[in-house]
Design a protein around this nucleic acid. Structure first.
Length: 337
DNA sequence: TACCGCGACCCACAACTGGC
DNA sequence: GCCAGTTGTGGGTCGCGGTA
C-alpha cells in the first residue's frame, strides 16, 4: 500500500493577513519590507494581524522576485572551536539586518554549495575552501561570494577575508626565539594543502632564516586525524633531534602536542615550548595555558558578512580584507609566565 | 506630498489543449 | 496514445497611478 503524504495545515499567506487587516496585499508587503509610504496606523494594523495569524513570510516565494534574505555559510568542519568564533562574528554582523545565516559542513565547494544556490540564498561565505580560483570564480558568477582563508586572489571575482598567516607564523617563531628556543619545529597539515598552510609554512621558513636558524628548519606534516597527529608528535619527541619548541598549525594540534609531551615525562615549557594557532577559548583553560596566535575569528566573520552584504547590494569590484594576527603569550611558551 | 493599492512579474512544475 | 506547446498556480515584490 502506498504511503500518503502527511496532511499539512494550510499556510497563512500575505493574502490572509491583508484580508484580516482589511488592507491590500501590497500594503502588507510594504510593511514586511519596511518600504516607503506606510503610515503608522496601517503598520500597526498589519502587525496586529500578522501576530494574530502567526504569519511567517515564505523565503522561496520571496526568492521569485529577488532576495530570500538568507546567507549560506560553509565550514570545512565544526570540531575546531575557531569556526564558532567566525560564526559568532557573522551573527553579530547580521544582528540589525533582515538576513539569517544557515550553515553547513563541506570540505569543498561541493553539492552543498550548489544546493544553497538552488535554494536562492542571497550570497555565500565559504570558510577555508579547498578549491581553485577557477571553481570559486564560477560560483561567484552565480551568487555573491566571500571566501575566508584563501590567499590566492589573483584574478579573483569574489571577495576574500584573510588573516595574515605568513606574519602569524613569523610572530610565533620570533616569540619562541625571544624566549630562548632555537630548535623550533613546525607541525603542519599534510592534506588537504591550502593557501593558508602554504603561507604559514613560508612564514616559518622566512623567520627561522632571519633568526639565523635556517639549518634547524623542520616541518612535519600530519593529516587531521587524531591518531596520526599523536604518532607524528611522539615520533618527533622521541627522536635524537628532539626540538625544544613546537609551533603547531592549530590549537587542537598544540593540545595534542602538550598531551603527548606530558605522557613522555617532558615539562612544559622547560623541556618543550608549544605555540598554537587560532587562540581559541580552550587556550585559557588552566590545564592548557597555551600560547597561541590570535587571528580574530570573530573579526573574520564580521568582515566577511559586511563584504557579502555590500556585494548583494550591488558592489561589483572584488575586495580583500586582511586581519593582522598577534601573539597571546601564556605558560606553554613563556618560562617566566 | 504621503499614503495606498492594482496588476504585472518572478520561476518551476503540473495540468490542460491540440495536432499528428 | 504520444508529444509539444500553452496556461494556471503558488506567495511574494515592484513600479506606477490614483486619491486625499
Amino acid at each position: 500500500m502506498q504511503k500518503k503524504a502527511a496532511a499539512r495545515t494550510p499556510r497563512i499567506t500575505i493574502r490572509d493577513v491583508a484580508s484580516d487587516a482589511g488592507v491590500s496585499v501590497a500594503a502588507v508587503s510594504k510593511v514586511l519590507r519596511d518600504a516607503y509610504g506606510v503610515s503608522e496606523a496601517l503598520r500597526a494594523k498589519v502587525q496586529a494581524s500578522m501576530d494574530k495569524l502567526n504569519y511567517r513570510p515564505l523565503a522561496s516565494a520571496r526568492g521569485l522576485r529577488g532576495r530570500t534574505y538568507t546567507l549560506g555559510l560553509v565550514f570545512p568542519d565544526l570540531r575546531n572551536p575557531f569556526f564558532a568564533d567566525i560564526f559568532a562574528g557573522v551573527n553579530a554582523a547580521l544582528e540589525r539586518t533582515r538576513y539569517q545565516a544557515m550553515q553547513g559542513i563541506s570540505t569543498s565547494a561541493s553539492a552543498l554549495v550548489e544546493a544553497m544556490i538552488d535554494r536562492q540564498m542571497d550570497g555565500l561565505i565559504l570558510v577555508g575552501p579547498n578549491e581553485n580560483n577557477e571553481r570559486l570564480n564560477d560560483i561567484a558568477k552565480r551568487t555573491p561570494l566571500v571566501v575566508i582563508g584563501h590567499h590566492d586572489i589573483d584574478g579573483a571575482k569574489f571577495d576574500a577575508v584573510n588573516n595574515d598567516d605568513q606574519l602569524g607564523a613569523r610572530l610565533a617563531v620570533r616569540h619562541l626565539c625571544q624566549n630562548g628556543h632555537s630548535k623550533i619545529a613546525m607541525l603542519s597539515l599534510s592534506a588537504p594543502v591550502s593557501t593558508v598552510i602554504n603561507q604559514r609554512e613560508l612564514g616559518y621558513r622566512l623567520e627561522m632564516t632571519e633568526q639565523g636558524l635556517g639549518g634547524a628548519i623542520n616541518i612535519l606534516r600530519a593529516p587531521q586525524v587524531l591518531r596520526d597527529v599523536q604518532l607524528t608528535i611522539r615520533k618527533l619527541l622521541e627522536s635524537k633531534d628532539k626540538p625544544d619548541a613546537i609551533f603547531c598549525w592549530t590549537d587542537l594540534m598544540a593540545f595534542e602536542a602538550i598531551s603527548v609531551a606530558t605522557e613522555l615525562g617532558l615539562s612544559i615549557p622547560d623541556d618543550l615550548a608549544v605555540v598554537g594557532y587560532d587562540n581559541t577559548i580552550f587556550c585559557d583553560f588552566s590545564q592548557n595555558r597555551l600560547t597561541s596566535i590570535d587571528q580574530s575569528g570573530e573579526v573574520l566573520g564580521l568582515q566577511a558578512t559586511r563584504l557579502l552584504i555590500e556585494r548583494i547590494d550591488g558592489r561589483m569590484q572584488p575586495d580583500h580584507f586582511v586581519v593582522t594576527p598577534r601573539v597571546v603569550a601564556r605558560a606553554s611558551s613563556a618560562r617566566n609566565d
